[in-house]
């Protein structure tokens, strides 16, 4: 009885941490989506300079550890006079890291839209921009739903890393409580359960959305060249 009672007493703090974890993940995810789309489009730009910058960004970010990126933002940027809170650093670090992976998914999704679609649009006099906005992107979005959805689960779990820059997320709160009470087993057990209770439904939801759009995609394949799915770039960090 006392064990349960004791564990329940940790719950408010842990749930507070979980709320921070969710907030950080959501914010970082939205920013990463925007950044990913922008860099994905830039990777396909007709202008060499734009393309090069985007390529270097994507390769560099993907080639360095997320942990290092978080440290750089939190500990190194202040030397340049830019001081960000743990929260802002965490969101920014995750967003930057994931935007690079998402850029690749968006790029391959855009390239997976059948060439005939582009030509049909061009032959109707559509400009590059209009074609991208009205014809290519709506189809590319459907193609990238599964990997982009899975990124949310991944970013949610990777967000535990922001605890190293002292952000009071679920992980950090767990560590604090554990080192204060030495109840490592109970506390980290609860932390694990909370992470799982959030990520599992989200993963299920992604599967559901995926299945819904898959029905439409199967229909689309008729009369359109077989679409090559983007590589599954999931589980990063």
């Amino acid at each position: 009885m006392t064990v349960v009672h004791e564990m329940l007493s940790f719950l408010p703090d842990l749930l507070q941490g979980a709320l921070t974890t969710i907030t950080v993940s959501l914010l970082a995810y939205v920013l990463a989506l925007i950044g990913g789309l922008a860099f994905g489009l830039a990777r396909l730009s007709p202008f060499l300079a734009v393309r090069s910058v985007a390529t270097v960004y994507v390769q560099f970010i993907r080639g360095t550890p997320l942990l290092l990126q978080l440290f750089s933002i939190y500990y190194v940027l202040p030397y340049a006079g830019i001081v960000l809170s743990p929260f802002a650093s965490g969101v920014l670090g995750l967003a930057i890291n994931y935007s690079a992976y998402m850029a690749e998914v968006f790029r391959s999704g855009i390239q997976a839209v059948a060439a005939g679609q582009r030509e049909a649009g061009q032959s109707l006099g559509m400009s590059r921009r209009l074609l991208m906005r009205r014809i290519i992107l709506p189809q590319a979005f459907r193609i990238v739903i599964p990997p982009i959805g899975n990124f949310f689960v991944a970013i949610f779990k990777d967000s535990a890393l922001v605890s190293v820059i002292t952000m009071r997320d679920l992980m950090f709160t767990g560590e604090l409580l554990a080192s204060a009470t030495f109840k490592h087993f109970e506390i980290f057990g609860m932390v694990a359960i909370i992470y799982f209770c959030i990520s599992y439904p989200v993963a299920k939801f992604v599967e559901y959305v995926e299945a819904r759009f898959d029905v439409q995609k199967r229909g689309q394949a008729i009369g359109v060249q077989q679409q090559q799915g983007p590589p599954a770039v999931v589980g990063t960090g």
Partner: peptide
């Protein structure tokens, strides 16, 4: 290009738009 129509062997209709949507797309936006 807008004044030259092209019909392809593989149709190349826009799969995310209805039949009507396919037809009005370019007249409206181009």
């Amino acid at each position: 290009r807008a004044s030259i129509g092209m019909v392809f062997q593989s149709f190349n209709l826009f799969p995310h738009l209805t039949v009507l949507g396919n037809i009005v797309e370019a007249p409206i936006h181009v």
